[in-house]
Design a protein around this nucleic acid. Structure first.
Length: 807
DNA sequence: GACATCGATGTTTTT
DNA sequence: CATCGATGTC
């Protein structure tokens, strides 16, 4: 848990004990190249033009990156301060910094090794004055200053909710989720609200443009930037102010980007701006080196564009491309399976992983009757492997497509006494109580933060309800002042339409905030949290509650305090933060140990990094997505069924299907020695049992690499009968009694199935025209998943009463 | 303004 | 099945 704060503070200070360079290594380029294969060596040595390293899974890309940095210093006369390396996760940044430090020693300290987002925050805080100027042209009355808040996805969504409500958008037609996602997409494409309005071609797009404009204005009023803004604003800044861009270009002569396949358009543009071009005047372009693997791009749904890596040579005409195909992780059997699956994607740069590790064991396949059987098989196999001394619990990971699939495994593992931990799911910083407390802290730190102010306004309950909030909000809008300002006025002289009861409550709240701000001024973060938990009655409420969950909430808050305490204590030994730099871009903008610094850390780091560093003796359970970048000697990849993996939503969409296939590739290539692929014939989804066909990806694994421990043919007599168990045959029972049975209102006579096949065109009274994507079940239990285009994709029961006609 | 109940709705998620 | 949001009632 506390790994959280073992991160480089602000990025520039990174001492650390064990980081002495291994004798002489950093001065000897030959030594540096000695343990690299020819392609790796080429990538390390290459200079003079942009470089793309296509690094297959397990091909040693971090090694290439770190050695390249060391080589730049040792052989090419680069100064450490000239180096910038950008990653996506803090974990990757920390690891890189550590490994570079191992190679070159404390000199690594003056390099910028950080995530896209922290890098941008650093630039934006430093250039806040200029950013405000930039914003002045676009939004009304921007109040952005260098202490801006960072809004994460949840904050952003809340802000969109407020905006949508103001614009009186029908939340059915324009779900917040969609609006927020669309706004995010626009930002990733570097489109301004004006651009969005201009190109809006339909109703939704017009509404999105409205929301976007209003949203940006409110963010500025709240002195806040969201995650997407961090990138977009930095790009806009560098483009609008050439002298600022040039400043950074002079400083950073070597730019390296990890996981380049995951960059979105804005990040792509950012890299371009940082590097510069021949005609961007003043400075020669910096040397760019990007590393990635298009086959491992699994975040398109978040805006990543595989195009960036595919078109690198076009974007940078002189570019050199080097393929790393030798894999140091897996057996050849595993790699062959991975190669075979990924080959199903068209239009890719062919790449064949190979290994010197030998054939190894065949991939084991298993067809389970249902998800419980699947879990039992996995558990039994783990037992056996551990008993035989083939593996320890630590060596083993279980992957699944969606988080809800973890439950069965947990149940079985608990029953069998197998130690495990689940990665992902609801994260620490997403828990309600943690976010509530952070909301208080953020408001204390940035009084204009509307979203967080409104979040805590009535938490715990203090009699400031929707009604009062609406009054304040409307007033703020009318007077063109911030919500916070309106609230202060309400506390003082009251507001028209506000009853005295509410007014008193608001006064009390504002006074409470003032009191807490006192605490901020004189104590450290942990104490502030203690104080606020007491003074707001938040802790009291939890302790008094008889909801068993609330005990856990109290624990989480204690944990948060611990985290805060560690933060204040490690207050980085900030002695020489890059001495001697004349223009000190390394200077920390936020005071060490301050509340602001704490909040920034918490926003940018979240807890993604509590990963493997093996809590000893535990089986690891996680989704395929979180598995990326990791490796395990033994991997169980489960749920290989069409509709589960590939996910139902991807079935109709070739691009999404391709992404699912990459996910399969990622999953397979995590395994070092042993790989298990399993599926279940029957799996209950949302209470209803579903039979799923084998994943199409499973068929793509060559039979000669697979050994079926249990195949479909072998399984005990196929029981197609409508199993007497609960849920099954629910329709036959009609509406008998159990009023909570879903659609139990359907009476028996209606249960005449409509026959549909994949690809059929249909018309639905509510959703309109659609295309059948998949069908499941038979007779009265038949369902179909239908794509209704703009109305969405819906799964329907094919019973007589659905207002559906086949065309 | 606070609470209860009903029903619609369900991926993945580095920051 | 579980959670969340939108309703309706005291």
């Amino acid at each position: 848990m506390s790994t959280l704060f073992d991160l480089p503070h602000g990025g520039s200070s990174w001492p650390q004990e064990s980081s002495e360079p291994r004798a002489g290594r950093e001065h000897d380029p030959d030594q540096l190249l000695a343990d690299l294969n020819p392609q790796q060596r080429e990538a390390v040595v290459h200079g003079g033009s942009p470089l793309l390293v296509v690094a297959g899974a397990g091909s040693g890309k971090t090694k290439v990156l770190t050695h390249r940095i060391a080589y730049l210093l040792a052989a090419r006369g680069a100064h450490p301060g000239e180096i910038m390396a950008i990653t996506f996760t803090n974990k990757a940044a920390v690891e890189m910094k550590e490994r570079v430090t191992d190679l070159v020693g404390p000199r690594a300290r003056s390099m910028w090794v950080s995530t896209f987002h922290s890098m941008c925050v650093r630039v934006l805080r430093r250039e806040a004055e200029t950013v405000r100027e930039l914003l002045a042209g676009t939004s009304s009355d921007p109040r952005l200053n260098s202490n801006f808040s960072i809004y994460d996805a949840d904050d952003a969504k809340r802000m969109v909710t407020l905006v949508a409500r103001d614009l009186e958008l029908d939340s059915k037609r324009y779900p917040v989720r969609t609006l927020a996602a669309e706004v995010s997409n626009l930002k990733n494409e570097l489109l301004t609200p004006a651009d969005a309005a201009e190109r809006a071609g339909n109703d939704l797009e017009r509404k999105v443009a409205d929301v976007y404009a209003s949203y940006q204005r409110r963010l500025a009023d709240s002195n806040a930037l969201d995650f997407d803004d961090l990138i977009m604003r930095t790009v806009q800044l560098l483009r609008a102010y050439p002298e600022v861009a040039e400043h950074y270009r002079r400083r950073f002569r070597h730019v390296m980007v990890d996981e380049y396949q995951d960059t979105n358009h804005a990040q792509y543009a950012l890299v371009r701006e940082l590097v510069g071009t021949r005609d961007s005047g003043g400075v020669e372009p910096a040397e760019l080196c990007v590393v990635g693997d298009a086959d491992q791009s699994i975040y398109a749904f978040r805006g990543a564009t595989i195009r960036n890596i595919e078109e690198f040579e076009r974007d940078y005409p002189q570019a050199r491309t080097i393929l790393l195909e030798q894999n140091y992780r897996s057996t050849q059997t595993i790699l062959s399976a991975a190669n075979a699956v990924i080959r199903g994607n068209t239009g890719r740069r062919d790449k064949r992983l190979w290994s010197e590790a030998g054939e190894g064991e065949p991939v084991v396949g298993y067809v389970a009757d249902n998800e419980h059987d699947e879990a039992a098989f996995v558990a039994g196999e783990i037992d056996r492997l551990v008993d035989d001394g083939e593996a320890t619990f630590n060596d083993i990971a279980v992957f699944y497509r969606t988080n809800n699939q973890s439950r069965v495994f947990e149940e079985v593992f608990i029953r069998r006494g197998l130690p495990y931990r689940v990665i992902g799911g609801v994260r620490f910083y997403e828990r309600r109580e943690v976010r509530d407390v952070l909301a208080y802290l953020r408001v204390l730190d940035n009084p204009e933060d509307t979203v967080n102010l409104r979040r805590i306004l009535n938490v715990p309950k203090r009699g400031i309800g929707d009604r009062a909030q609406a009054v304040v909000s409307v007033y703020a809008e009318q007077e063109r002042i911030s919500f916070a300002a309106a609230l202060r006025r309400a506390a003082g002289e009251g507001l028209p339409g506000l009853n005295t009861r509410a007014q008193r409550a608001i006064s009390g709240f504002v006074a409470l905030l003032d009191e807490l701000r006192e605490a901020v001024a004189q104590s450290d973060v942990a104490d502030v949290i203690e104080t606020l938990l007491e003074r707001t009655g938040y802790r009291g409420e939890l302790e008094a509650s008889d909801d068993p969950q609330d005990a856990g909430r109290v624990e989480n808050l204690t944990e948060l305090i611990t985290v805060a305490r560690e933060f204040s204590e490690m207050r980085a030994p900030s002695e020489e933060t890059s001495a001697g730099e004349s223009e000190d871009v390394d200077a920390a903008v936020l005071p060490d140990g301050s509340l602001s610094a704490f909040l920034e850390r918490v926003s940018l780091v979240a807890d993604a990094d509590s990963l493997p560093d093996s809590e000893e003796g535990m089986i690891t359970l996680m989704t395929l997505h979180t598995a990326k970048g990791l490796e395990f000697p033994v991997v169980f990849s489960t749920g290989w069924e069409d509709g589960v993996f590939p996910h139902m939503r991807a079935l109709g969409e070739p691009a999404e299907l391709a992404e699912e296939r990459r996910l399969a590739y990622v999953g397979i290539t995590r395994a070092r020695r042993r790989l298990y692929l399993s599926r279940a014939l029957m799996r209950s989804a949302w209470g209803q049992p579903m039979t799923n066909p084998a994943s199409r990806f499973l068929g793509e694994v060559p039979e000669d690499l697979l050994r079926w421990r249990r195949s479909e043919a072998e399984r005990s007599a196929p029981q197609v009968r409508s199993s007497g168990s609960r849920g099954g045959g629910g329709f036959d029972r009609g509406s008998g009694g159990a009023g909570n049975g879903r659609s139990s209102a359907q009476s028996f006579k209606d249960s005449v199935a409509i026959k549909l096949a994949v690809g059929d065109r249909v018309n639905h009274d509510k959703y309109g025209l659609g295309t059948v994507l998949t069908t499941e079940g038979e007779g009265a239990r038949a369902t179909a998943t239908i794509d209704f285009g703009a109305s969405g994709t819906v799964r329907l029961m094919l019973i007589g009463s659905v207002p559906l006609t086949k065309l």
